[in-house]
Design a binder for these strands. Structure first.
Ligand SMILES: [Zn+2]
Ligand SMILES: [Zn+2]
Ligand SMILES: [Zn+2]
Ligand SMILES: [Zn+2]
Lengths: 144, 144
DNA sequence: GTGAACAATGTTATAACATAACATAAATAA
DNA sequence: TTATTTATGTTATGTTATAACATTGTTCAC
């Protein structure tokens, strides 16, 4: 959270109340959260925030690399490596619902190589591997 | 199309009228199509097919590896390598809206390696790189 | 300080994507 | 043929995301 504040300050970006609350909600969850889950959390008390507000906050947070969107789940998760902009690669376990962000230097290199072979200029890189994490696999989480 | 028929015959799977029509629609488009786009196409004449029917056909076609879903676009595209089940890796150009399926042996290897390093057992592999294809980049398609 | 310009939020409505649940019909097996 | 399974029809609803425009708040030049 300090990191987020520092980062926004450095960029002259405003980490407002609602953005902070959304970020906090996303960070508080190990599992990826849907936008409407986040919304429900914010509105748990007396709230009456609208979906738009959450989506706008998420857009802001994504722009600044504090949150990632998991396309395969329509869900959002806090960035584990909130440094400069980076490609996000995720391992998504259907057993424990975890999504682990991985720092894949080798993978990144392989992707780059493949792209340049095609002359393709990348802008967004989505890599999401679904399956079972080591723990859940050992536990014998069933197929379906 | 012959391929699809052969493949289904071999497996005892029934490539019915509606499934065939959906496959044809998806194949006819270079660009990925949304489910409701496909639906609109089928219903262009006298039709009155419901969304469910399209989604069910798509599920069938995906099970048999004839169609892929692009998670980042909520769209579907015909498989360019309709052989055995394979991980689908796509290059998605925002200029010409094309989605190119790539046969990335090296990339596949890199992914495998990374996964085993994490002890992660994969089931579904989503790799979608968005950006500009060589042609659109050369044309100077602008940022936004 | 005042006012212009921009940034953020509020508000309402709707678009776009996807599935649940149950009924009917068609194909296959026994 | 009857039973069983597979596919489709039908209606309704759930889920995710954006459009459009009004209002409020912040910043900055003057
Ligand atoms: Zn990250
Ligand atoms: Zn797990
Ligand atoms: Zn394919
Ligand atoms: Zn292109």
């Amino acid at each position: 959270m300090r990191t987020a504040e520092a980062l926004c300050a450095k960029r002259g970006a405003r980490l407002t109340e609602i953005r902070r609350r959304v970020l906090k909600a996303v960070w508080a969850s190990h599992a990826p959260m849907g936008a409407y889950d986040i919304l429900a959390g914010l509105n748990a008390g007396t709230g009456k925030i609208a979906p738009m507000a959450v989506y706008r906050a998420l857009d802001f947070l994504m722009e600044h690399g504090l949150v990632h969107r998991l396309a395969s789940l329509n869900a959002f998760i806090g960035c584990a490596l909130a440094t400069e902009n980076h490609a996000a690669h995720f391992l998504i376990c259907r057993g424990c619902k975890s999504a682990t962000e991985m720092e894949g230097a080798a993978l990144t290199r392989a992707v780059k190589k493949t792209l340049s072979a095609h002359g393709f200029v990348p802008e967004t890189e989505i890599i999401e591997i679904q399956g079972l994490c080591a723990h859940c696999h050992k536990e014998g989480v069933p197929k379906t």
